[in-house]
Design a protein around this nucleic acid. Structure first.
Lengths: 223, 223
DNA sequence: GTCTATATAATGATAGAC
DNA sequence: GTCTATCATTATATAGAC
């Protein structure tokens, strides 16, 4: 089913200048944000600025191509890890692999910049969290919530947002080292998070009950 | 101690074009980020672009002036609320006042953009949270943490980060309505947060104990 | 396919009239 | 103090040679 002998394999077509430009763009966008110039990207890819436009039409076109490429890669990684029954969130999965650091950086730049792709990627993270919460509840390690979807959204927002904050507040000279950021994040927030998740934060139920009352839910359940 | 009768009051000097430009800049920066053009700001202030530069030297100078102005205002509000024994975090205090929406928007844009001012403002939020945690522990409503500073940092990061996320992900056509964002934030995250804070998330201590062991702390305390 | 040279547009900043 | 007109720079995008 392959071609005639002696021919190079088909996927070598992904090593053309077009692919090199795309890879360079993902790296540049991730490290320096979407304000990088086309010239910088071209230099990194070892081509001229004109060629970049020639292949992608415009800088916006290049951005779209990068979005598609990154989303596709994330999908691949997700699929792969699902079939291997890996029960970690997409963030954990990605951050655990050093080779995916550029991907992660791009992802966070995209979220930082807003827009449709950012929303889509974030929504995927939310549903990941919800799935793992459901699994935890099923096996009895996670207390059921009155609203699992909201809890998932809250936890995803906290994780993503606090990481976002680390990325933006520490302006690492000239380029974001995502491995470092993730390490810093887990070292800094693991203890307080586990503490509150295990033992709670408040000693009284008054605030929760007051809120439940306020939104019309009877406090204490039905029993 | 005042000047001769008939003169206009001194603080009228804050209503000059310079002040109008500064106010317009704070609003524009807050709504659209720091990429807004000087011309846009000038138009909003009702003056020419040249006058903006004339008063502030450069766009960077204008940015600095806005930073100083906003930090000053935040200080005022903080001082005011401290003397009135208001026990809310700076975020809560600011968000409760509709008239401060532009301030909040600017603050978050500054954090989003990174830099010294952002770090300073964020550190202030962190120490706010730590102070309120200490007060809660003192009056017995908050469970003491093994590391209060880290807990404060974690909670501040979650609150600020999740809000940041809302701001960036919902690209409100042409300008961020911070009142709406804050309302959405509290409606969305209040229940899951209170739930976890009151009842905890995990049913077992295994993860926490394993972590404490890992970092060298004996689980379960000293008794 | 790829490069060099150039057109075009936007923006920050300057100069000088009023 | 304020405006208009203009400059200088930078960046995207185009045109045409090779």
């Amino acid at each position: 089913m392959s071609s005639a002998s002696g021919e190079p394999p088909d996927r070598a077509s992904d090593l053309t200048a077009r692919a090199r430009i795309r890879d360079a763009a993902v790296a540049c966008f991730g490290q320096q944000g979407f304000d990088v110039t086309v010239r910088t990207i071209a230099e990194r890819a070892g081509v001229s600025a004109g060629l970049v436009i020639h292949h992608f039409g415009s800088k916006a076109g290049l951005r779209r191509a990068c979005d598609d490429y990154v989303v596709g890669l994330v999908n691949e990684i997700k699929t792969e890890s699902i079939t291997s029954h890996d029960s970690r969130t997409i963030l954990q999965q990605l951050s655990s692999m050093e080779e995916h650091a550029p991907l992660l950086a791009y992802l966070f730049r995209a979220i930082l910049a807003g827009g449709e792709t950012a929303t889509a990627l974030y929504e995927r993270m939310v549903s990941d969290v919800e799935r793992y919460l459901a699994a935890g509840e099923a096996e009895g390690t996670v207390r059921p919530s009155r609203d699992r979807a909201k809890r998932a959204r809250w936890m995803a927002a906290n994780a993503t947002g606090s990481l976002l904050l680390l990325v933006t507040l520490r302006p690492p000279d000239g380029g974001t080292d995502f491995g470092r950021v993730i390490r810093e994040w887990s070292e800094e927030y693991m203890l307080p998070a586990l503490e509150v998740y295990t033992e709670g934060l408040l000693t009284e139920r008054t605030m929760l009950d007051a809120y439940l009352m306020y939104v019309g839910d009877p406090p204490g359940g039905t029993s």
